[in-house]
Design a protein around this nucleic acid. Structure first.
Lengths: 196, 196
DNA sequence: GTTTGATGTGAATGCATGTTCACATTACCC
DNA sequence: GGGTAATGTGAACATGCATTCACATCAAAC
């Protein structure tokens, strides 16, 4: 019938947000133009007024995720070890709030889709790792972290604290206690990186 | 035209193997009955002589992966710390040889498909974690590993050593040096778990 | 208020792919 | 060797989904 008209900037945001929610609920595979349109309250063809196609919707979604991840890292400015701890729990919280993130990171839609998308995802993760690496370097300058620690390696391991937990949480439908596990895992990781 | 007839047991194996290869190449999303048939040298409809449908093909693939993973763990009987180290590198090797494994573990076809599949995947990972946990416990009995280490937590962290590396390797099209990274990461992880 | 470009709609189109079915051929059993 | 069940084939069918298009409607510029 009738439907309020909105500026394309607003719609693009709405569409990307709807896509994110749908991905969280049904996975990237279950993401359809029809589903997005329903969520936003539009008709499928209307999506094409704001995006060139499904691929471009996904691109914007990736941008949003990138932003959230990087915001997360840059929010921490306290002493480096504490910064890492907080970052870890923020990351966990972020993933719990929008399950779509691991879904997308692990989605083969990213890997087997347009090569640019794969490159973009790689960029996102590498940027994130770089930021984490910088925190580690700061910790080394502050003499809080071991000098023989490779910041890049530490950053990847840091990611490794989160990823399996996210998967288990997902697979177990929330039964796996991520917070508790992360607490313990952090203790273990911590003593591997702090100065003796 | 004409095509040699083979027992369904043989075909099922061939089909599952072909599926695994295709997944490695094009991702779970790119797995099609037509693709499998081509690879095996059959016509698409012939697949249905041996499987009830695509889902059942995936089920068998999952079984194969489960087997490979568990074989991997149970192959190690040496002293526990060394066993963990070897297991780690075996795991890396396994993933490099059949990229399909991480593809499947991360695939949303598993998460948003039939719920049984999700449960099966969960079972596979949990069984694997349990086996790793047992090695850790053995290490604790041998006084090689810290007594205050939670074996379950250690097992998940162990998985965390492999997963991000696998993803990075994949995203970077093999440019990321998994072996080198794993060497270093193992050193870090090691000093977090061995007895002081 | 009229014009005009932007946004929304409904129907139609096209494509990829899983699945079924009637029929052909082969392997195996007696 | 003849019969029979298993295996293979080609074509047709079904479906879900992205995408397009002609037309309708609204909002903002003038």
């Amino acid at each position: 019938m009738k439907n309020e008209k909105m500026k394309t900037e607003v719609r693009r945001e709405q569409i990307a947000t709807a896509a994110l929610q749908l991905i969280a609920r049904r996975g990237v595979r279950g993401l359809s133009i029809a589903g997005i349109a329903r969520q936003v309250g539009l008709v499928p063809s209307a999506i094409y007024r704001h995006f060139d196609g499904k691929d471009h919707v996904l691109d914007l979604v990736l941008d949003q995720i990138r932003q959230r991840l990087l915001d997360n890292v840059q929010a921490e400015t306290s002493d480096s070890v504490e910064a890492l701890r907080r970052l870890l729990f923020r990351h966990i919280k972020l993933i719990r709030e929008s399950e779509a993130i691991p879904m997308l990171v692990f989605s083969d839609q990213v890997y087997s889709g347009r090569p640019e998308r794969k490159a973009r995802m790689q960029r996102i993760i590498q940027d994130y790792l770089e930021q984490v690496g910088k925190v580690v370097q700061r910790g080394q300058k502050e003499k809080a972290l071991r000098a023989d620690l490779d910041p890049a390696v530490a950053a990847v391991m840091f990611l490794g604290l989160v990823q399996p937990a996210a998967i288990l949480w997902h697979l177990s439908e929330g039964a796996f206690d991520v917070t508790k596990h992360t607490e313990k895992a952090w203790q273990v990781f911590r003593r591997a990186i702090v100065r003796p």
